[in-house]
């Protein structure tokens, strides 16, 4: 079924993309309720986090259980810079990305030669260490109380206040992140990173500098997460260490795996479904996490690769085009 759906998606790719883009742009005018918009904004932010994690986990194949750490680093960087030093939004965004990227670089060095579960534990532990620092470095992060009254985002003197404005900001950021990740996947670097995922040794024998490309992928992934963190802190204007726990890291990873590793569309899907689902379940909020867990188990039993994990849209597209070309060629003869 998923295969048929994917083929259908690819066949009408252009139309669907236009419709989606239109819907996304019109969304805040269709739904004006603050609650719905807030969910939509969080949804898009999680999409961005998932797209960035997908670069590390799906494309490079290093399953990180600590992505919330980068998100948190970005959020704290932006909060501190804009609150204490009065930086404007764009500068804070860039700096948040850079600092998160630096931590990504820092993390990538020890994990370079670690595989599988060693990578898992180091990323988990990394997330925990960052959180402990956030809790304890009172002078910088204000500890467990968190940072309050972070100035709202402003462009050229205009402060953004409405949900609608933030919706467009995150929509733009998400589009930019998706564009970057897509560009990378389909470039020379993408081939290299995918080759490393499939077989590190063979990739080395193809002349690929494994170390370099691993660092690239991890750093870019953490930079995007840092940017999402910046958005988060400026949007909610309040952050504290409990926003960036291992549980959140796991949630982001679950979204990516739910949609399918290595598939950007899957990441969107996973992030959207798993952000909206808890809201739908809000009625019986006690059982929310329980249902979430059960759903995960059932999904793994039905589709162990995640919904779109075994689907490669590029290949489907190529095969469709090839089939068409062949049929056309036969027709002429």
């Amino acid at each position: 079924m998923i295969e048929k759906l994917s083929t259908w998606l690819v066949r009408y790719k252009r139309t669907l993309l236009i419709i989606t883009a239109l819907l996304a742009v019109l969304f805040p005018w269709i739904f004006s309720s603050k609650y719905v918009l807030r969910i939509a904004i969080l949804c898009l932010m999680y999409c961005m986090l998932c797209v960035s994690l997908n670069l590390m986990a799906g494309v490079l194949g290093q399953i990180s259980f600590g992505h919330a750490a980068f998100w948190g680093i970005g959020a704290y960087t932006a909060a501190i810079l804009s609150k204490n030093y009065g930086w404007n939004g764009i500068a804070a965004l860039l700096m948040a990305a850079v600092i998160a990227g630096l931590f990504g670089l820092l993390l990538s060095l020890p994990v370079m030669h670690l595989k599988g579960y060693y990578f898992t534990i180091v990323t988990m532990v990394f997330c925990q260490i960052i959180r402990v620092i956030e809790i304890n470095w009172m002078s910088l992060t204000n500890g467990p109380l968190g940072i309050m009254a972070i100035p709202k985002l402003s462009f050229f003197g205009v402060t953004l206040k409405s949900q609608r404005a933030y919706f467009y900001v995150i929509l733009f950021l998400l589009a930019a992140a998706t564009f970057i990740v897509r560009k990378i996947i389909h470039s020379r670097m993408g081939y290299a990173i995918l080759a490393i995922r499939d077989d590190e040794l063979a990739a080395g024998a193809m002349g690929i500098h494994v170390f370099k490309y691993k660092v690239y992928a991890i750093v870019i992934s953490s930079m995007l997460a840092g940017a999402a963190g910046c958005f988060y802190s400026l949007y909610t204007s309040y952050i504290d260490p409990s926003c960036f726990t291992n549980a959140i890291s796991n949630n982001i990873l679950v979204m990516v795996i739910f949609g399918g590793l290595g598939n950007i569309f899957g990441s969107f899907f996973g992030a959207t479904v798993l952000t909206i689902l808890p809201e739908v379940l809000r009625g019986f909020s006690e059982y929310r996490q329980l249902v979430y867990g059960a759903l995960l188990v059932v999904l793994m039993l039905v589709r162990p690769d995640g919904l779109f994990g075994s689907v490669n849209f590029k290949y489907i597209e190529q095969r469709l085009a090839w089939k068409k070309e062949k049929a056309g060629g036969d027709g002429h003869e």
Binding site: I63, N250, V254, I257, L261, E286, Y287, R288, Q289, L290, Y292, G293, A294, L295, L296, V297, M300, L301, P304, D305
Partner: peptide, 28 residues
């Protein structure tokens, strides 16, 4: 999952899901 020869990662995610179910069942 073993019967299906599923990738190792799905086993890991399954235990994560199970863990959520058990933890939250206890909480409830």
């Amino acid at each position: 999952l073993r019967k299906k020869k599923a990738p190792k990662l799905s086993g890991l995610i399954t235990t994560l899901g199970m863990s959520m179910v058990v933890d939250n069942a206890i909480m409830v």
